[in-house]
Design a protein around this nucleic acid. Structure first.
Length: 417
DNA sequence: CTTCCACAGGAAGGTCTGGCGG
DNA sequence: CCGCCAGACCTTCCTGTGGAAG
């Protein structure tokens, strides 16, 4: 990388980009056309159409794995609903809430209330009020507006507790002039099993299932966006089928397919390649995974970082000693305690540590499997999942860890039997 | 067959922060 | 300023358990 000229940006700009419109390839983009989802769009619209007549639409439950177009369809239909409502002069509201971000009863009600903020110059603080007061406020606002409100709860399985769903499911009987209907979206098919039966029957008036896209359908989706996003004749013919095939293997996730293609194009661009070839797709696949892990590790709370560091040290130590057996919770906790002493961080209990370990597992940074070693008890078998080098690098960005970059486990506490 | 390890993981409660109205 | 509230984060105490060893 010997740049002879100082005009860095000029060089980069001169290199022709491959994109026409990058945004089209991003997950946040809601497309105008949703290939292979015409039936779902019609079905959902059919359920919601009573809203335009001032009646209450049935509550709907939408199931489907990630990247099957649930959110896109819901948003799309919502947009159309509002347009039509405006055209007909009906008061129809459409509120989209992602329960991964807004995950408690209070926050949901607050979000709904703040949707009406324009007409009412009140605002609900994000903490401080008793929950039922917010609920009362929401009711009052809706009644005053005499509107039909469709509320989408995306990733509804991330909600904590079912009070929120309970209060929403019976809100209609508390309303005099307004109507509410709830669309629940979940990628967990078993989600309703754990719900209060009353909520279950109320929310599940209608059920829809979104099936994963197959490779051919993914190809259509990609082609559809590529025309808008990427300059013509810059892509090898096999690239789209490859992206589609790879993503079809991973449960037909369209978001994944789009990401893969976008990152492939970005990598090609960065390498000054005039074309996107299959080798860039392979690179992209790798990059996406590593980027994800790096981002997750970087934003981990300190205690989790310490635990992760402990796991890393142990794994290195084990490898050196030729121990193939995976570590378990107790081992990790011992090393973690040692590290805590070294960094003079306060030390959490084993109970809490166990929770943090399974959190790391769910994030895909480590794998932790519950096993039984018979007489030697039940524990977790813990391993680093991949790219430990990258993880260590990210961890050492933190000042706390820089000091003992070369720290060796002093504790002969390991009585590995 | 029973025992018993080394935890898993549920329940309940404590502490602290940040933000509210009065 | 106070009293109150929700929520994040932990601790304490607890019961449950798969399966090798006895």
């Amino acid at each position: 990388m010997s740049a002879k000229t100082t005009d860095i940006f000029g060089q980069l700009l001169k290199a022709e980009g491959l994109f026409i419109n990058r945004e089209v390839m991003r997950p946040s983009y809601t497309p105008e056309i949703l290939p292979h989802r015409e039936r779902e769009i019609n079905d959902l619209a059919a359920v919601l159409v009573p809203a335009l007549r001032g009646e209450t639409p049935s509550n709907v439950f939408i199931y489907g794995k990630t990247g099957t177009g649930k959110t896109a369809v819901a948003k799309f239909v919502g947009k159309e609903l509002i347009l039509k409502g405006r055209e007909m002069g009906k008061s129809v509201n459409f509120i989209y809430i992602n329960c991964e971000v807004v995950d408690t009863q209070y926050r949901i009600l607050q979000n709904i209330a703040n949707h009406f903020i324009n007409e009412w110059n009140d605002h609900i603080p994000f903490t401080g009020w008793p929950t039922d007061e917010v609920y009362a406020k929401v009711r009052a606002m809706m009644d005053k507006e005499k509107c039909v409100t469709v509320i989408v709860l995306d990733e509804i399985d991330k909600l904590k507790g079912d009070e929120a769903l309970y209060s929403l499911s019976r809100i209609n009987s508390d309303l005099d002039n307004a109507r509410v209907s709830v669309i629940g979206i979940s990628n967990d098919l078993k989600f309703t099993e754990f719900l209060d039966p009353r909520v279950k029957s109320s929310l599940g008036e209608e059920n829809m299932v979104f099936y994963p896209y197959d490779a051919d359908q993914l190809q259509d989706i990609l082609k559809n966006r590529v025309d808008m996003a990427i300059k013509p004749n810059t892509m090898d013919g096999e690239v789209i089928p490859l992206c589609a095939a790879l993503s079809a293997q991973e449960h037909g996730d369209a978001r994944r397919a789009l990401d893969l293609l976008r990152v492939s194009a970005e990598l090609a661009e960065r390498n000054n390649s005039p074309r996107i070839t299959r080798s860039f797709v392979k690179l992209a696949q790798n990059k996406i995974e590593i980027d994800r892990i790096i981002e997750v590790v970087r934003t981990l709370p300190n205690q989790s970082k310490l635990i992760l560091y402990a796991i890393n040290l142990l794994e290195k130590e084990n490898k050196k000693a030729g121990i193939t057996q995976a570590m378990n919770t107790g081992d990790v906790y011992d090393v973690y305690k040692e590290l805590c002493k070294k960094t003079r961080a306060n030390c959490l209990t084993q109970r809490r540590t166990a929770d943090l370990i399974s959190e790391l597992d769910m994030l895909g940074i480590i794998t932790a499997r519950v096993i039984s070693k018979g007489r030697h008890g039940r524990t977790r078998e813990i391993r680093m999942s991949s790219s430990p080098k990258e993880i260590i690098n990210v961890l050492q960005e933190d000042e706390t860890f820089r000091d003992f970059a070369n720290y060796k486990l002093k504790g002969q506490t390991r009585l590995t039997l």
